[in-house]
Design a protein around this nucleic acid. Structure first.
Lengths: 124, 124
DNA sequence: CTTGACCCTCACACCAATGTGAGGGTTCGA
DNA sequence: TCGAACCCTCACATTGGTGTGAGGGTCAAG
């Protein structure tokens, strides 16, 4: 598929698909005329990228952790340098912290909403 | 306490404390000379704000959900307009989605790290 | 051959969060 | 009274993720 279809299938502006490529998050083959071509696996990949971005991770980090998540079972160890492993451990912990914080606050919001909903409309 | 102490106690640059105030996330009393003064509750508040920011929420949204989370039990309903409630429900769902995404990826990273660690160092 | 729907690169612009520093007050101890 | 260590406002700069558009190819259908 070309960029337009990938854009539609992922709900992502073309601009951003090009940006992700520029940042090294995805790769695209090229047709002889220069058009980018993608296969189905790119859909999932882009959705994952968007999820991570939305979750607050910068592309720099996403680029580092993506290789670890590609084929769930075919973990193909890159030149896992100690620094990279440290970065990953660090990021894993940051994610855990983020999850905790988000959960706490999400629950609080949910509780609030539940409380409001239980209250008869305060007619002025 | 004044801004310097709050900064130290929260690990947050003064610049940002002023910024959060400008964005309406925190309020500060003023001494006669114009200095900001804070009490202990502001420490937790700032930490919460930082957590939410780090989790990817913009100040605009944080400002909306903070009032719901102040005193866990003393839910003091603001003029909960229907739009605001809708925003909150929306944000709650987005947070849930974020949590799912983060968790999934965090687990994948953790798994990868565990796998790497189990492998004897590939001595070139 | 032309039109319309694609695609390309390049580049400027925006916004939110944050850095940084200039220019200038206050307070307090040496 | 001087200097250090605070504080203030103002304002420009930077970064990352985006929006947007100009200027220009490609290609299939009419």
């Amino acid at each position: 598929m070309r960029i337009g279809e990938l854009s539609e299938r992922t709900g992502t502006p073309r601009r951003l698909l090009r940006y992700y490529e520029e940042q090294g998050l995805i790769v695209a083959d090229r047709l002889p005329n220069g058009y980018r071509v993608y296969d189905g696996s790119n859909v999932d990949r882009v959705l994952q990228i968007r999820g991570l971005l939305d979750a607050g991770l910068p592309t720099r980090i996403i680029k580092q952790i993506l290789p670890c998540l590609n084929k769930p079972r075919i973990i193909h160890f890159p030149d896992a340098t100690p620094e990279m492993l440290a970065t990953l451990e660090d990021e894993r912990d940051r994610m855990t912290e983020r999850i905790r914080c988000l959960t706490r606050n999400r629950d609080a919001v949910a509780e609030y909403l539940a409380a409001v909903r239980e209250t008869p409309a305060p007619s002025v």
